[in-house]
Simulated scan of single mutants.
Amino acid sequence: MTPKPSTGRKDIADADVEAVTAQLGRTPRAVREVAYRCPCGLPAVVKTSPRLEDGTPFPTLYYLTCSRLNSRIGGLEASGRMREMTERLAEDPELAAAYRRAHESYLAERDAIEPLGTDVSAGGMPGRVKCLHVCVAHALAAGPGVNPFGDEALAEIGEWWQAGPCVHP
């Protein structure tokens, strides 16, 4: 028996769905609410349901939507930052513990909506850094001090919103 999906769209205005659609170039899936709003006023991170509308598990709780921020994060990924960050996990027990806490926080938040019965969170947590987009989305949604690699990437990127909105829906 396929588990029933979460109710999906929970608390997001039509204008925000339009903005996210413009940012992604497609209609967002399983979106529940805006988890972080860019200083320009548009959504930058949405919180998604743990399952898509058809019941398929979708473990990515926080999804980065800002196209400009996505591009900047892609540049960090292309420069090899994820490999460097993963190497530091093996060398720094305090950093590894902080990243494990980020993973546990992520799972707890997702499971509070709907448990998926898995210890897999997203982005490679807690053993490696596989996707900086997930780390940054988590850091923005949860606030500073929760996801150390998300915080680090945001500090490196700087004020991505200075040029104004990434889209004009």
Rank of each mutant, 00 (worst) to 15 (best):
P3H: 09
D11E: 10
D11P: 03
D14M: 15
A15I: 04
D16Y: 08
A19Q: 04
T21V: 01
T21H: 10
T21E: 06
A22I: 10
P28H: 03
V31P: 05
V34H: 05
Y36D: 02
Y36H: 15
C38Q: 01
P39V: 12
G41Y: 07
L42A: 09
L42P: 00
P43C: 15
A44M: 06
V45H: 08
K47V: 12
T48F: 03
E53S: 14
P59H: 08
T60S: 12
L64T: 00
L64E: 02
L64N: 00
T65F: 00
R68S: 05
S71N: 08
S79R: 09
R81H: 08
M82Q: 14
T86Q: 08
T86P: 10
E87P: 10
E87V: 10
R88V: 01
R88K: 12
R88F: 04
A90L: 12
E91P: 04
E91K: 15
Y99K: 12
R101A: 12
H103Q: 06
H103W: 05
E109H: 11
E109F: 08
R110P: 02
T118A: 07
T118K: 11
T118G: 04
S121F: 01
A122S: 13
A122I: 11
G127R: 15
V129D: 08
H133A: 08
V136F: 00
H138A: 00
A139H: 04
L140V: 05
A141E: 04
A141I: 02
G145T: 06
F149M: 01
F149Q: 14
A153Y: 02
G158E: 07
G158R: 00
G158W: 01
G158F: 03
W160L: 13
W160V: 07
Q162I: 14
G164E: 13
G164S: 14
H168N: 14
